[in-house]
Design a protein around this nucleic acid. Structure first.
Lengths: 335, 335
DNA sequence: ATGCTCAATGGCATCGTTTTCATACAGTTG
DNA sequence: CAACTGTATGAAAACGATGCCATTGAGCAT
């Protein structure tokens, strides 16, 4: 293992100049003659020297890092958002610190347990659905805060219009001629409850507009919840001919129940999800896309904008898009 | 926005002690009376002070951060590995820096472009399938390197026995009475090529052991490749009665083709994947689990061990496990 | 009382940068 | 030739922690 990584002093010695000059060259600021600049550059290359963010950050007060807080890392969605964030931050020469909150959440003062303060220039939360109290706790860190997946007045946020997305989906089903359109939603989940509410509202609004009665079943979030909820619906005397679920994961559970019960999709029941899960295409599931990667990109851009003080707009609404596949079709009443 | 984050000096002043004492308390080292310790602690809490890793790292030479390098962030697999790493590192009070290499890979000297040097205490690569030259480049950073998803003699690695896993899967199909067992593999993928090779070898070995002819189709990695490959197999005069794919993603593509062609699974063809993708259960896909989260955990533990100098074992082989679901069954010849 | 030990605490140099200020030197001008 | 530019360069003081060494004072044996 190498003894000690080279310091700026080593570069200075090798190039025969002072520390200040090396610093100027490394930061690319003017005020160094081309000859010297060249000499310093090649000295640095020779030692394969890179500036210690630790040390420079100490002086500048900037760490060159952005902390990203996610509830969990496993679900598909977060990987996509992180991918967007990561790519965008790299171009601004910022590193990405990832904190998975997970089960820690709920413990009083989990925001404290993260070593954010002084260790990042900004904080991005991903679908954390923060309470205003939690927001304030994070404000306390003293760096800009950018939220995704929730809309809070006066704060920098990136979000989608869940209400509109769900309404769009519902209208798609209604346009196909369905009148008995049920909704499977989640309840009591550990996060996303705000988005849950909005999606349900969107469905309700669309149904009301069409003058049709709403029909919603709430279950535990996740695949299992979808399975159970669909079971309930099938047990009805007159089951629905179309079902919209709050997210693709629940749709997959519902799909499983349908397959096991021998109910043809979309023959007897049209099924729709929400999210455009990476495997929705495998199931040919009609769904609503929310472009998670683009959300990440937007959040990172917003963050960079704020850090550069040229903060333009603080609210970014991402579009949702209907993805039509094979799991929905016009209504065909069963005999 | 607050003026300036509190420094250790502020805490010291508030608690009426010296800098050294605060430092001792924050690091939890002995040599401070309980009374003072308590006083300092509450002063720190009041200011919601946390130590600056930047500053402490400057002195100790440790950054308190571990860099994780992944090819991409979107695929399900990486999220799971990261989840394992993240949780484990947190307990050791280490932060996780994530670098997505993505398209950068392949550019000469991509290892240089990452600001690793001096900015992390260790580097973990996830399924990067590094060449020995790339390894050396990373050694150059001067911090311990831990590889996952590949086995390199003399280096700290975490990996699974792909060969054995594929052989296990193949034998499962053979035990069900299948004799025409095909393999769908990937070719020319941007990464994972080593693991690809091993899985194919495992399949071949199992077939050879059973005295049966191998039958493999290589296609582009990913779902689309699976679709196409399965199309090819179905076009044969005597299609196989069982198909093993290199990974679940390809199995999903294959599954789609089968569904569209009206071939019942597992009625006419038994289908197996490899990875235990989070949605394999939705499709009731029999597969081989490689516990990505556990891989992450193991890699992080290995890293921590090395950092604490008590590095025990440098090679960790993770077990694979057959996950039996509904997509495989005993052979039933079609009429 | 005196000397000794040991735990608790404070002082200060140090880490590797940035930043401000001072200096040297070349070129221009009156 | 003196005074004034302005541009390169260097010296030194931060930044916020750690870690070594010195100091203090209490407890105890002599």
């Amino acid at each position: 293992m190498s003894n000690r990584p080279p310091s700026m002093r080593d570069v200075a010695r090798l190039a025969g100049v002072s520390l200040s000059t090396v610093s100027r060259v490394m930061r690319g600021v003017p005020g160094v003659s081309p000859v010297v600049r060249e000499r310093v550059q090649s000295a640095a290359d020779e030692l394969s020297y890179v500036v210690s963010r630790n040390a420079s950050g100490l002086v500048t007060g900037r760490t060159g890092r952005v902390a990203v807080i996610v509830p969990f890392l496993q679900p598909w969605f977060f990987g996509s958002v992180l991918a967007g964030i990561s790519d965008t931050l790299r171009h601004a020469d910022l590193d990405m610190l990832v904190h998975q909150v997970g089960e820690l959440r709920g413990q009083r003062g989990w925001t404290r347990s993260l070593p954010l303060r002084r260790n990042s220039d900004a904080v991005i939360t991903v679908s954390m659905d923060l309470s205003s109290e939690e927001c304030e706790r994070l404000d306390d860190v003293g760096v800009p805060l950018v939220l995704t997946g929730q809309k809070v007045p006066g704060r920098a946020c990136v979000f989608i219009d869940d209400r509109q997305g769900a309404a769009k989906a519902t209208r798609h089903l209604l346009n196909l001629g369905h009148t008995r359109v049920a909704y499977i939603g989640s309840t009591g989940g550990p996060w996303l409850s705000l988005s849950s509410r909005h999606r349900l509202e969107g469905y309700r609004a669309a149904m009301a507009d069409a003058g049709l009665p709403e029909w919603s079943v709430l279950s535990s979030p996740g695949r299992r919840g979808g399975e159970l909820a669909m079971g309930e619906l099938l047990a009805e005397h007159h089951p629905p001919t179309a079902v919209l679920t709050e997210f693709d994961d629940m749709a997959m559970g519902a799909y499983r129940t349908l397959r096991r019960s021998g109910v043809p999709v979309p023959g007897a029941i049209s099924l729709m999800g929400f999210d455009n899960h990476e495997v929705a295409s495998v199931l040919d599931l009609t769904t609503v896309d929310q472009a998670p990667r683009a959300i990440g990109t937007a959040a990172a851009e917003l963050t960079i904008g704020i850090l550069n003080e040229d903060a333009p707009h603080r609210h970014v609404e991402m579009p949702t898009q209907l993805i039509l596949r094979q799991s929905t079709s016009t209504v065909r009443e069963r005999p």
